[in-house]
């Protein structure tokens, strides 16, 4: 038994981080966007980032995803320094090994393009040139996100909000990215639709071994999805740790306030 025990933690220690962030800061003039953020994200791990509006969590996410250039700090993805990388390579990574799920499907989908075309775009962007194969993959992914394959040629504008969000997820995951950034993915959805999406995301994370950086203000969502949690306030990380530990035994005053402010149902 001792041998087996050594094994599971050795495995944990051995695996290098997929994403390493050190001293990341972004300023808007004299205002702090986010300041001195450091963390490691490991393969298969979901990191939740919570905080109120203006806490810097969205700024942090957009810096991580390369949508904004931070003022200080470094990001290493899979051993590669994201800032030393030429833009073409960074964008190639962004559409193959990384993905970004927006809060509003309108920002993440092409509303004038069919569901199949939306899913196929990333495949074609990385060189897919066989129509039949692209369509087959698109059908497979529609099934995985529980959208009827018969809707493959419909435009997302004819879909419900929950379907649009699931389509956005399929569109992002079709190239089997290893790292997915999610900005309030369950934000604008009805509660029952949220539940289905959460279940879907959990299954995909587990089955595909995805690493996820999940930004949300919904503590119930992070409890169900995130392994680890980072709490932000005024651009700073005030507390981080195991998700249920941070939520059930918060150490920082701000986290205590945040947790105790949630309405119980």
């Amino acid at each position: 038994m001792d041998g087996a025990e050594m094994n599971i933690y050795a495995k944990v220690k051995e695996a290098g981080p997929l994403l390493s962030v050190r001293g990341l800061s972004k300023f808007y003039g004299s205002r702090i966007g986010c300041a001195d953020v450091s963390f490691d994200l490991f393969p298969g791990e979901v990191l939740g980032i919570v905080g109120e509006s203006g806490s810097g969590k969205s700024t942090l996410l957009s810096c991580l995803a390369g949508h904004q250039a931070p003022d200080e700090g470094g990001i290493v993805f899979d051993g590669r320094d994201m800032f030393a990388m030429a833009e073409p390579e960074r964008r190639r990574l962004a559409r193959s090994e990384q993905a970004f799920v927006h809060q509003s499907p309108r920002d993440g989908l092409r509303m004038g393009v069919s569901a199949g075309g939306n899913i196929g775009e990333r495949l074609m962007a990385v060189g897919g040139r066989n129509y039949g194969a692209i369509r087959e993959t698109a059908l497979d992914w529609l099934g995985r996100v529980e959208i009827d394959g018969a809707r493959i040629d419909d435009r997302p504008s004819a879909f419900s909000g929950g379907m649009q969000q699931r389509l956005q997820i399929a569109r992002n995951l079709v190239t089997a990215p290893r790292l997915v950034f999610m900005d309030e993915p369950t934000g604008g959805l009805d509660v029952s639709v949220q539940a289905r999406l959460l279940d879907l995301l959990r299954g995909l994370v587990r089955d595909l071994g995805l690493s996820v950086v999940l930004v949300t203000h919904d503590l119930a969502v992070v409890r169900l999805l995130a392994h680890r949690l980072m709490v932000m306030k005024s651009g700073h990380v005030v507390e981080q740790g195991l998700t249920d530990q941070v939520l059930d035994d918060p150490q920082h005053g701000y986290t205590q306030l945040l947790v105790s402010s949630v309405l119980q149902v």
């Binding site: 599971i8 944990v12 791990e45 392994h227 530990q245």
Partner: peptide
């Protein structure tokens, strides 16, 4: 279970000290 942080002492489960373990080690545990 690692759900509450201990203020001091050692909590050994198998070979792991839960009181000092990283979140990832607790998840593996």
């Amino acid at each position: 279970h690692g759900n509450y942080l201990a203020a001091s002492g050692e909590i050994l489960v198998g070979g792991l000290d839960v009181a000092k373990a990283s979140p990832r080690e607790i998840l593996a545990l």
